Every structure is written in C-alpha cells, then in structure tokens.
Amino acid sequence: MEHLLHIFDWFLYILLSINVAYLLVYSLASLRRGKPLASVPARACKRFAVLIAAYREDAVILSTVHACLAQDYPDDKYDVTVISDHMRPETNAALSSLPIKLLQVDFEKSTNTKSLKAALEYLDKAAYDVALIIDADNIIAPSYLSEVNDAFAVPGVRVVQTHRVAKNLNTDMAYLDAVSEEINNSIFRSGHANLGMSAALIGSGMAFDYPLFYDAMMSNTSVGGFDRVLEMKLLYEGVHFHYLPDTFVKDEKIQQANNFYQQRRRWLSAQYYSFFEFAGRLLPAIRDGKWDFCDKLYQQISFSRVLLLGFVFIISLAHSLCASPSACKWWGIFILLLSALALAIPRKYWKWRLLKAVCWVPYSFLLMLLNLFRLKEANKRFIHTVHGVDGY
C-alpha cells in the first residue's frame, strides 16, 4: 500500500509540475517587450462591423455604444450592430435613436453564439472587411478602431486580440479579478506572442477577417464560451492570432463572489467542452506540425490557476503535517508557481489592496472546486453575468 501511495504521489507531482512549468516559461517570456505589430499607420481604412451581443444589458449597453460611436475613424467605414435580446422597450427605443444597426431577437434559449449568427445573417457579408466583437459592458478609446485597422494592414494578419483591462476596481473581488485578467494577458497573450505562438482569445476585444469569422461562426453551436470553440477551429486551420498589448478595451470585473462562481462555472464548462470536442484532432495536428492548436488543446485540459494553487498548497501542507520527506519537492513547485504568477502581475497592481484581494483566493478555490461537479448542466444553458457599475 505504501508503495502504491509513493507511485501516486510521484504521478501527481509530475502532472502538476508540468502545469507549473508551462506557466513559468510563458510568464518569463512575457517580461520581454515585444516589437509592435504595426510600425506605420495604415494607408487605407478597412470596413468594420462592430458586433455587440446584448442579453439583458440595459444597465451598460448605452455607454458601450456611445464609446463605439465616438471613434476617430471615418463614419462610413464602420457600423455598430447591437443584437438586443430580452432588453427593455425603453432601452431599445434609446438605441433606435442612435446611428447604429439594431437587431432585436427573442430567443427561447439565449446564447452569444445565436446572437452573433443572427447578426451575420442580417448583415451583408460583402460589405465588411473586419468583424470586431465587443461585449455589452466594454468601453473602447476613440483611437481603438484606427489601431486595429493598422494591425490589419500588416500582411498575413487575420485575427487580433486586444488588451482587455479592468473598467472597475470597486471591490476586493473586482481587484482580484482584474489581477487574474492581467496574469492571463501576460502568460497566454504576451508570453505566447513573444515566443512566436498564437495569443489566446478572450471573448471580446477581438477582431477577425470578416469572411473567416463568418464561416467559422455559422458552424458554431456552442452554448457558452463560443470563443473557445472558435479559436480551436481556427487554430486547427492554421490561422495565427496576434496580440495588441497597447490597444485597450475596458471590461467590467466581477464584483461579488456569487457572480464569480457563475462566470467561472461557465468558463470551466466551455474549457472542458472544447477539449473533448477537439481532442480527436490531436494526433493529426502533431503530424502536421500545428503547434498552436496543440498548445491550446493543452490549455483546455490543464488546471485553472486557482485550482492549481489550491491543490499544490494542500498537498504540500499534508506532506509537512505527516513529516513526509516528499514535502520539500512539493513546496518547491509551490514556490515556483507563486513566482510564475507574481512575475505575470503588472507593477501597477502591486499595492496593499493586492494583499486584501489575495485573501479571497481560498474562497475562490472552494467555489472553483464546487464548479467541477456542476459542469455538465452548465453547458446546457447560457449562464448570464449581470453587469452594471456606478459611474459607467
């Protein structure tokens, strides 16, 4: 029995060490400042379709639309399309008074996938060069479209992900969520881009070659996390994703623990759903050298950072309490994990508030652990995150 426990301990150690090493490598890679994608302004203005799927987003949609309309980009070169799903009549009336395209839908079972597909069917496919996906709570600067247009002027660029940052830091949970977002940006976007890999998509603030997006979305049937399935499809087709670290989109951060639980449940479900849907393509991808796809597939099956932190800490503590000689090796990878995450946090977040926010990590771990047992039902219905922050 003791021999079996020893083997199991080493199995867990190797499994979790791979997760930690992966994060550490890309975290270190993110420390180097990469070259800008576009070095000169674009000569021509591409035609943009700005798509905003809005399900019960009455509290935030108008400020988002106004930000999109305030671009220093030719008015005749972009259209803002809002897909209004279950929003109040007065909100739709206010939107109708603005120079946008308003598509009102009323799905029995609403999803972002259905809304975006409805918009693509509604719009003229030949009228646009680029599809830009913006969440209903996002805020973009006036130069945003121009910066994305510059990127698409670079030969070979078909997909870009912009830098999503926190719109609000009004609670400790929001601060923790903002830090988590920036860790993702460092490891899965800057770090990957600096090593020549594709940056991860994030669901909003992402732009696509319009025909490419149209073809990929019209065959997308995911309930939650449409971006997970979308990026797996495109990566398998050999499309490279670029990252624009200096082009920002403000995104509302989770303010309460209950919303964190619901949002992460949706994310975990989408993560594992996309893995099992595309796992069968791993061997052909390895054979054909589709390393971006293989890397993304690994991300889908790997532990989330909160779960990884919790599991490694609990195992390390258990070994110490039992006076096990294996404790040192476990505390070693725990320190490496902490180092990987610390290196990925931007300097501006290193404040006393960070310490307060970190106090929420154990509770977040428990919520994520509970989510592991509720993933199946999460992929059967759309889990909506309620938005709305005072002052926006």
Rank of each mutant, 00 (worst) to 15 (best):
G391W: 04
D390K: 14
C45D: 11
S198T: 08
L370V: 12
L268Q: 04
H66E: 15
E90Q: 15
F107E: 04
A270R: 00
H3G: 12
F188V: 07
A127Q: 13
S324R: 04
E237S: 13
W10Q: 12
L24P: 00
D150G: 03
Q263V: 12
G196Y: 08
N194V: 09
K376Y: 11
L370F: 12
P245K: 07
S222H: 07
V306Q: 02
V105Q: 08
D79H: 08
E108P: 03
T111I: 09
W350H: 11
I134E: 02
S320P: 01
P211W: 03
V60N: 00
N194D: 12
I140W: 00
W10E: 14
Q161S: 10
A344Y: 01
A67R: 01
R374P: 03
A340W: 00
F373H: 13
Q262N: 13
S198E: 06
K296S: 08
F188W: 06
R88C: 14
A93F: 06
Q161A: 12
D150C: 06
D172Q: 12
L176F: 08
L169G: 06
N112G: 11
R56D: 10
E181D: 15
W330M: 07
H86N: 12
L354V: 10
L337A: 06
S17C: 13
A174E: 02
Q299M: 14
S27N: 05
F48K: 00
S269L: 08
L12A: 08
S115Y: 00
K351T: 15
K77F: 08
P142Q: 09
L337F: 07
E2I: 11
E90P: 01
Y13S: 06
Y26C: 04
T221P: 04
L297C: 07
S222C: 13
A200P: 01
Y13N: 05
G391C: 10
V65Q: 02
R347V: 13
Y22E: 11
C294V: 14
G310I: 06
H387W: 05
N194Y: 05
R264G: 04
R189M: 14
I335E: 12
S110I: 03
N259T: 09
S324I: 09
L169N: 06
V386Y: 05
T171N: 09
S115C: 14
F365V: 09
W330H: 03
F275Q: 07
F334I: 06
H86M: 10
I286C: 15
V179F: 01
I14P: 02
F48L: 09
P211H: 09
I7M: 14
H240N: 12
F334V: 07
T113I: 07
S198N: 07
V386S: 10
L283D: 13
V105L: 11
D129G: 05
I333E: 02
Y363G: 05
Y243C: 04
K35D: 14
I286P: 03
F311I: 15
S84L: 06
A21W: 02
A279M: 13
L230S: 05
K77I: 09
W291K: 10
P142E: 10
F107W: 03
H3W: 14
F226T: 00
D215G: 05
D150K: 01
S302W: 01
D137I: 03
K109V: 13
Y363C: 07
A270N: 05
M173H: 04
A342L: 15
R158V: 05
F152Y: 04
L321M: 15
L341V: 10
H3D: 15
E147S: 11
Y363F: 11
A178V: 04
L367C: 11
I314M: 15
D215F: 01
S274T: 11
E277R: 08
